[in-house]
């Protein structure tokens, strides 16, 4: 006797359920126990189970169990996987190439060229000798403890992914700012990307692509990190002073002149804040992505966890923090320069 027999009996669905010999399939532990002990368990009102799939299945074997739901989802995904792959695979192939080449380039350039180049780039962006010095020192330190290659791998992945995030994120943000419908449609998607645990979208990606392909972790990082740049581009353009836009209209600017001459320049501080956040989030994700074969410092963190190498884990974790500080400082310096010229 199951709790919800009366529902099916009452609705006259007993026939559909397949007669009286309920419990032919898998049974709950309770049911098994009561069967072996030979006495019907009387469930008190206090212990009435929620009418869940499993509870209903107990009363009526024709009802699906909850694990049928998850396996159904899995089978459904597997069924569309091939079709999806035909479309998605070629579209994402450039990402694989970009990642492979960036990884190769960052490691092929010798350290005595690479570190000065990175210092010059950070100086060009931030116009600060102190900052360039910090960059040089940090990389020298990481190289000194023989983590140089891992650091370069991580950096290469972040450069490629952050660049692609900006490449797609800014136009999406602009589209959202210019059209309320696009914004209404995009916000739930962005909310979902931001709240979904990163491990969760690794799973379908693993089904879709081979774990050996760089684009697998590339897509995971991009999906995770693109949100802030989209949001802040949208916000930045919407926050541009209405009077300034009105002035642009009153002097006869075209939509294009308004976008590139007024809205984007004035939204730039916000867009740059978004780029900063995007870079920080791709750095966070690059560690998790090492689970799906992303190279770099994340691999060492993972090794620290897997084989309990405390020292390796801590030092590579520190290396990631160091990278984060550098990337944050450089992008913030760029942001400060933009702000200084506008306010």
């Amino acid at each position: 006797m199951a709790t919800y027999d009366f529902v099916f009996d009452g609705l006259g669905l007993r026939e559909w359920c397949g007669g009286d010999d309920a419990g032919g399939g898998l049974m709950s532990m309770d049911a098994l126990l009561s069967e072996t002990s030979g006495e019907a368990t009387e469930v008190s009102a206090w212990d009435t189970p929620f009418p869940s799939l499993d509870a209903l299945n107990e009363a009526c074997p024709a009802m699906p169990q909850s694990r049928d739901l998850t396996s159904g989802l899995e089978n459904g995904f597997l069924a569309i996987k091939d079709g999806l792959q035909v479309v998605v695979d070629p579209l994402t192939q450039p990402l694989s190439w970009a990642l492979t080449n960036a990884l190769w380039l960052m490691q092929a350039v010798p350290w005595w060229l690479m570190i000065p180049i990175l210092m010059i780039v950070s100086f060009a962006v931030g116009r600060s000798l102190k900052l360039a010095g910090l960059v040089g020192l940090s990389f020298a330190f990481l190289a000194f403890i023989d983590y140089y290659d891992y650091t370069m791998q991580t950096l290469a992945i972040i450069f490629v992914c952050a660049f692609i995030c900006v490449l797609f994120g800014v136009p999406i943000g602009i589209a959202m700012a210019r059209n309320d419908k696009v914004q209404r449609g995009m916000i739930p998607v962005l909310d979902m990307l931001q709240t979904l645990p990163p491990f969760v979208y690794l799973i379908p990606l693993i089904f879709l692509f081979s774990v050996t392909e760089p684009k697998l972790y590339g897509i995971a990082i991009i999906l995770y990190a693109i949100v802030p740049v989209v949001r802040l581009t949208d916000l930045g353009i919407r926050m541009v002073d209405k009077e300034v836009i009105e002035a642009a209209d009153a002097f006869g600017m075209t939509e294009r002149q308004k976008l590139f001459g007024v809205q984007i320049p004035l939204a730039l501080p916000n867009i740059m804040a978004g780029v900063n956040q995007t870079i920080m989030m791709s750095l966070a994700m690059v560690v998790i992505a090492s689970l799906v074969s992303a190279p770099g410092l994340g691999v060492l963190v993972l090794r620290g966890i897997r084989s309990l190498e405390l020292g390796v884990g801590l030092v590579s974790g520190f290396g990631i923090v160091l990278l984060a500080i550098i990337l944050d400082r450089v992008t913030k310096a760029a942001l400060a320069r933009i702000n200084a010229s506008q306010h």
Partner: peptide, 9 residues
Amino acid sequence: FQKFALLPH
């Protein structure tokens, strides 16, 4: 304009 509405950049 009342609030000048100059382009700050």
